[in-house]
Computed example of a mutant assay.
Amino acid sequence: MPLLSGFKKFILRGNVVDLAVAVVVGAAFTAVVTAFTAKIIEPLIAALGGSKSVDGLGFRLIKGNPATFLDFGAVISAVINFVLVAAIIYLFVVLPINTLNERRKAKNGPDPEEPASERELLEEIRDLLAKQSKPSSHSATPPSVGGPSL
């Protein structure tokens, strides 16, 4: 069973879950967003090109050679596609997971495996040193520094 608990701990780390869900959901939403940009955004951008002889927003370097067409509309569509996919993943995956993690952390208190901050460690050392420097209540003489004298 230690193997399963270790695996569960690994899987439930925020970064692993976020990454796995983002990949799956991102792939699904990419198809939807790509269709949206190809069928709605690209025709709108192509309409901005103005000329019916041009295939979109761009120009040909060599007339009559379609391989030399610089298609700025395709680049703009790719950027819009990327921004839409990133926004959807953030809104529907990352934000809910972060909210759940914050609620769980607030409910359970701070993570016991989380290391103490430098300030907390220094305060703890200070308190321990202050305790050690106080004379004990059952002894009337302060402790000697060099050890017992003869």
Rank of each mutant, 00 (worst) to 15 (best):
F7P: 07
F36Y: 15
R119T: 11
F10K: 03
N108A: 15
V21L: 15
G64V: 13
R13A: 11
D111W: 07
S144A: 10
L100Y: 08
D127T: 05
A87R: 02
A31N: 15
D18I: 12
R119D: 10
G14R: 14
P66Q: 03
I41D: 06
I97L: 14
D111R: 00
F59V: 01
V32C: 11
E118K: 09
K134D: 11
T68L: 01
L3C: 09
V75C: 05
S144H: 08
S139K: 09
L128K: 05
P115Y: 06
G56W: 01
F7V: 15
G147I: 04
E120S: 02
E124I: 05
V23F: 14
R60E: 13
P148F: 04
L12K: 10
K131T: 09
L70G: 02
P148D: 03
S117E: 09
V16F: 15
G147K: 04
L57F: 08
R119E: 13
E118C: 03
A67G: 01
A20E: 00
A46P: 02
D71P: 04
V23K: 07
F82N: 08
L48K: 05
G14T: 14
P143A: 14
I89F: 00
A106R: 08
P112I: 04
I45F: 10
I89N: 06
L121E: 02
L3W: 05
N101A: 09
A46D: 12
I76R: 00
